[in-house]
Design a binder for these strands. Structure first.
Length: 504
RNA sequence: GCCCCUGUCGUCUAGCCAGGUCUAGGACACCGCCCUUUCAAGGCAGCAACACGGGUUCGAAUCCCGUCGGGGGCGCCA
């Protein structure tokens, strides 16, 4: 095959939301096209009128874009080989069908669905592969033509040789062979006049000058049928590469039960698109150097379609989370704040109208609080450290810290000094800590644990020297849910300690 | 049932094609230690796999055969 310019396509059917398996197929196609300076085509396979919906096509395009993919030709992008929706190409298929019929390479099939279904069941019961009997193949073409003209409905089937072997060389799997005895005459055109999948792909891939078909392994057994169709039309088939499936944790087909599987869910839950992209590339492929956290450009350089694994991969959220954390870490403070904002605003923690000061505060807060976050949907929970302060709802560990011997001394001393100091900043805080150490002789955990509980009402969270400025600055800003200053917090804790000393 | 694909740590994988350098490498997760006023992050170490059985060979994760497991297909779905 003489390939001048590599052209690949992603050809989803708009019958539902795009899931990770398809997304990975799209990604590999894109990577392969872009690294070879080729063309990436998006083709919508909407020949299943019952299930195809326009809404799904829009969502599909949105999801693909979110992932960071783009295409040179497609229903929205145009191109010289359109239209890119199969439902708009019906007349094109018809031309080819006529040709096949005239040349005697295809024939009308008048069998009813019930009839076929019965035959299939019989075959299955007999323990053989259900193959179309070829009953209508022997019909006189003139007679068939008359029946059609008189208004009878019929499908069109391809004549498949009864004997022989058909083979092709898969880019990933190598040489594959199939026995023609086990391939029945496939339906090319349904009695509704709509082309069947196996037929439309062949014509479209040819007309769109596709050089490499990269798709899921569920299409392996379709490939011989398609090659047969290419032959009947005297066309040269493209090269094929069949990708292994993506499975769920329990090694069954990925479904909702495994967590998010539709691509838009990953956006909603707050995964970074480049991280999602990165992780998907790692499903069935490994970078040669072993460094796995990679940007798009690096992936483009390193990816190798021929090195893609032949066995199915299990989608692992743990690893996705790790990849996502690594990508979050690479973001600058502004970037972190921008990404965090929608999640925090939706949770009612941030005002819709953010001032410049708000943004600067958010940048600082995000820098500290986004560490170790798997996905942004965890952010409201993380930020509640700043926004929620309820000394009434302490857990057991916090209570026991307050009950310790040093706690009342530390908190009382801290409260007194804080009252006198007014506000608090890092320098004042450090000075106060020093004074308390000197006056009480308490230091280390005995000093910091009670302070942490007094200020945050929790036993874990940020380092206090990061926490204090955030809270103090935050207290001066207006938020839908105001942030309490350190002074307010200590006062409340103290009051709580005194009033309910017995039962904390 | 029949056909096809596939089988290395729990998971993603390197190695397999061109058999020895593999006491099987890396990453996630897990466990431990260090760092640290907590958590996290970071650093260091550890646990952990050639599905099984036969061959071929001086030698097999690598080649051959079989078994078993997993997946896909067998549609007028795509």
């Amino acid at each position: 095959m003489n390939i001048e310019k590599i052209r690949v396509r992603f050809a989803p059917s708009p019958t539902g939301y795009i899931h990770v398996g398809n997304a990975r197929t799209a990604l590999f196609n894109w990577l392969f096209a872009r690294q070879n300076k080729g063309v990436f085509v998006l083709r919508v396979e909407d020949t299943d009128v019952e299930r195809s919906r326009e809404e799904y096509e829009r969502r599909l395009i949105d999801d693909l874009r979110w992932m960071g993919l783009d295409w040179d030709e497609g229903p929205d992008a145009g191109g010289n080989f359109g239209p890119y929706r199969q439902s708009q190409r019906l007349d094109i298929y018809q031309g080819y069908t006529q040709k096949l019929l005239q040349e005697g390479k295809a024939y009308y099939c008048f069998c009813s669905t019930e009839q076929l279904e019965k035959e299939r069941e019989t075959a299955l019961a007999a323990g053989t592969m259900p193959i179309y009997s070829g009953r209508c193949r022997v019909l006189d073409p003139g007679e068939a033509e008359r029946r059609i003209r008189s208004g009878e409905k019929a499908a069109v089937r391809l004549k498949v040789p009864d004997e022989g072997l058909i083979s092709f060389d898969d880019l990933i799997r190598g040489h594959l062979e199939f026995d023609l005895k086990l391939i029945g005459d496939p339906v090319l055109v349904r009695s509704t006049g709509f082309p069947a999948y196996n037929y439309a792909v062949v014509i479209d891939d040819h007309l769109m000058k596709i050089t490499h078909v990269v798709r899921g392994e569920d299409h392996i057994s379709n490939t011989p049928r398609q090659i047969l169709t290419y032959r009947a039309l005297s066309l040269e088939p493209p090269l094929f590469a069949h990708l292994a499936m993506v499975m769920g944790k329990d090694n069954t087909r990925l479904s909702k039960r495994h967590g998010a599987t539709a691509v838009d869910q990953f956006a909603i839950e707050g995964y970074l698109a480049p991280a999602f992209f990165n992780y998907l590339a790692l499903l069935g492929w490994a970078p040669p150097e072993g460094r796995e956290v990679l940007e798009k450009a690096e992936l483009l350089e390193l990816f190798d379609l021929k090195k893609v694994s032949r066995s199915a991969a299990i989608f692992d959220y743990e690893k996705l989370h790790w990849i996502n954390r690594q990508h979050i870490k690479k973001l600058d403070p502004g970037g972190k704040a921008r990404r965090a904002f929608p999640f925090l605003a939706d949770a009612g923690l941030l005002p819709e109208a953010m001032t410049e000061v708000h943004w600067r505060w958010l940048e600082k807060a995000a820098e500290s609080l986004m560490e170790g976050v798997d996905k942004f949907s965890e952010l409201p929970q993380k930020f509640s450290l700043l926004f929620d302060f309820t000394p009434l709802a302490l857990d057991e560990e916090a209570k026991s810290i307050l009950k310790s011997e040093s706690a009342p001394k530390v908190i009382t001393a801290f409260a007194q000094k804080l009252e006198r100091a007014g506000g608090l900043d890092y320098a004042k805080y450090a000075a106060i800590i020093e004074e308390i150490k000197k006056e009480t002789g308490i230091k280390g955990k005995a000093l910091f644990h009670p302070l942490r509980v007094a200020l945050t009402a929790r036993t874990s969270g940020l380092e206090l020297d990061k926490f204090i400025p955030l809270v103090e600055e935050g207290a001066r800003l207006s938020f839908p849910r105001p942030i309490k200053s350190c002074l307010e917090r200590v006062r409340e804790t103290k009051k709580h300690l005194e009033s309910k000393a017995a039962d904390i």
